[in-house]
Amino acid sequence: MAQATATAEAPGAASTGGTREVKVIGIVCNWCSYAGADGAGTARLKQPVNMRLVRVPCTGRIDPLLAIKAFEKGADGVLISGCHPGDCHYSEGNYYARRKFELLDRMLPHLGVEADRFHYTWVSASEGARWQSVVTDFVTKVKALGPRQGRAL
């Protein structure tokens, strides 16, 4: 949590908007997506620099409030990624998680956050190339929307 808020909170960033670079928070599980991102880095796959990763033990641990808090603190996008359903290191964490993320995905547009600013997906440890494309696509979409200037969230 502390990490999630600290990375998103550059002084004044949330309120100025305008032409600044977008900041995207990625919350990833230790066992799959973090390893996948690591693999992408090791393989020198080019990725946008806007992504800040927060590593958590399992997507089942990710409270939707973490994503909401990131938006409240001025993040321009939040990406959540973990093991594919069925491949969870703890067997079932991501089954619980996807219900919560789906609700969050449906609620955020209702709270004034454009749908493209939030995405949840599954990237396994061996899918470095998939990680690259997921991040690139997501950041491109967020860049198209530009920096957020949310007053409520």
């Binding site: 547009p109 209702h110 709270l111 004034g112 956050v113 454009e114 007053r151 409520a152 969230l153």
Partner: peptide
């Protein structure tokens, strides 16, 4: 009524209410 608003309008409305 609220669902029909654009994201900016929703944000403004929520800010006003909260």
């Amino acid at each position: 009524e609220f669902e029909a608003l654009s994201p900016e309008e929703k944000d403004a409305k929520l800010a006003e209410v909260f």
